[in-house]
Design a protein around this nucleic acid. Structure first.
Length: 423
RNA sequence: GGAGAGAUGGCAGAGCGGUUGAAUGCACUGGUCUUGAAAACCAGCAAGGGUUAAUAGCCCUUCCAGGGUUCGAAUCCCUGUCUCUCCGCCA
């Protein structure tokens, strides 16, 4: 949520900066609701003040044994007036907060202007494309050749967009998880956490998945649960409704979870293979930091995700998402895209964002600033470090040989019992 | 699933219809004392919101959440959530 006070005082400016995001803000509706809110709130509070004063007087009179009838007569029908006022105010405030909850974050000034992913800005590349003396296969064919990846049976058990991995491919998948967790805890100073995969609606609202993107989520309505689409949700919500001591800042968490996404609206896109699944695993980096540090930490966090690809020797590039491609809650996002030989292109494997105080305001996540002694909103960031399924297929495709075997990157070999090759 | 107990400020913990935003202790902050520290003593210390030029003043809301009773609710009633203890079941 953006700062309501800021929105009120800078209405025109906010409308302008949100336009490039493709967000059309109904200024007139908001303005008239806001006028009404102001009027009703002042009226309600005045009535409340009056009631409080009268009630206090009754108490005092009774204590002295005086007659309270005259004061009681004064407050005779105040209750009804107050109630009516409160109800109207409530209505207006519910409408206003519904509007506030659907306003996306304001992009940082360094975010490039643009409409689609075509306008994203490449900022660096690492490594080189692998050279193949043969036509490289994609991971689906490689997995089928090894008899270790089975989409048909997964479709029978669940539906499309699921996979069954077997044998060494399943082990390689697990090895990637271990390798990522160990690297981030040992080299980058993150604390490993294990969290619920089902969360309540408050948590989804806190990080911004609700109310606007309900159709992207899997839900279990009879229990009030949602399946997490990313570990960002449970991990970031650790600090919801908390006031952190400055000594406990920053907080850095790394978390491995499955992620569940309905992929509504992406029918027909990436239907082949493991690129876009209803269920996939991800190792997520989450930080809660002092506001003044968040932009530097976005760079660090991105480099932590990059470090995994570097150690795996996978060619990648980093792009800054343009205003039109930016996610709802983010002020700025770097996507890391890994090279996929089969598609002859880069594909997203990590998304690292600074949300500034957007999520913190929704969550009431604060820290006590020792300089002011007051609770202030903290800043939240997160990034994939990395998406495990996509990393697996990147390893398979980039390390294949002419016989359809997979050469295991050196850093993963200890997790594979010393094995150097699959197939 | 059954029975019982509970949920109050950063933490612990009183209060159980009237001037209580809330005793007390701990923690924290400032001061006195001290070469310094500790101890002792003194003082301060909840959050959110409205109004406003104001981080000034005034006002409102908040004692798990949501309803209700009342002139007045932390205190009474109803519903829900969560925690703890015992029993049952169980990875």
């Amino acid at each position: 949520m953006i700062d309501p006070q800021y929105l009120r005082n800078n209405l025109d400016e906010v409308v302008e900066v949100l336009k490039p995001r493709g967000y059309v803000f109904d200024k007139d509706t908001f303005f008239s609701l806001e006028q009404e809110r102001k009027k009703l709130q002042v009226e309600t509070q005045t009535l409340q003040q009056e009631r409080n004063a009268r009630s206090k007087a009754i108490g005092q009179a009774k204590a002295k044994g005086e007659d309270v009838e005259p004061i009681l007569a004064e407050v005779a029908n105040m209750g009804d007036r107050l109630k009516a006022c409160e109800e109207k105010l409530n209505e207006v405030q519910t409408k206003l907060s519904a509007i506030m909850m659907e306003i996306p974050n304001i992009p940082h000034e360094s975010v490039p202007q643009g409409k689609t992913e075509e306008d994203n800005e490449e900022i660096r590349r690492w490594g080189e494309k692998p050279e193949f003396a043969f036509e490289p296969k994609d991971h689906v064919d490689l997995g089928a050749g090894l008899d270790q990846m089975d989409f048909e049976t997964a479709a029978k058990i669940a539906s499309s967009r699921f996979v069954i991995m077997k044998g060494q491919i399943a082990q390689l998948h697990r090895a990637l998880v271990q390798f990522m967790l160990n690297t981030h805890t040992q080299d980058h100073g993150y604390t490993e956490v294990n969290v619920p995969f089902l969360v309540n609606a408050d948590s989804m609202r806190g990080t911004g998945q609700l109310p606007k993107f309900e159709e992207d989520l899997f839900a279990i309505p009879e229990h009030g649960f949602y399946l997490i689409p990313t570990a960002e949700v449970p991990v970031t919500n650790i600090v919801r409704d908390e006031i952190l001591d400055h000594k406990d800042m920053p907080q850095r968490y790394v978390c491995h979870t499955p992620c569940f996404r309905s992929e509504a609206g992406s029918y027909g896109r990436d239907t082949r293979g493991m690129i876009r699944q209803h269920q996939f695993e991800k190792v997520e980096l989450v930080q809660m930091v002092r506001p003044e540090d968040s932009w530097q930490i976005l760079e660090e966090l991105t480099s932590h995700a990059e470090a995994i690809l570097q150690k795996l020797g996978l060619h990648y590039r980093v792009v800054t998402l343009c205003t039109g491609d930016l996610g709802f809650s983010a002020a700025k996002t770097y996507d890391i895209e890994v090279w996929l030989p089969s598609q002859n292109t880069f594909r997203e494997i990590s998304s690292c964002s600074n949300f500034e105080d957007f999520q913190a305001r929704r969550m009431k996540a604060r820290w006590r600033n020792p300089e002011t002694g007051k609770p202030e909103l903290l800043h939240t960031l997160n990034g994939s470090g990395l998406a495990v399924g996509r990393t697996l297929l990147a390893v398979m495709e980039n390390y294949q040989d002419t016989d359809g075997r997979i050469h295991i990157p050196e850093v993963l070999q200890p997790y594979m019992g010393g094995r150097e090759i699959i197939g």
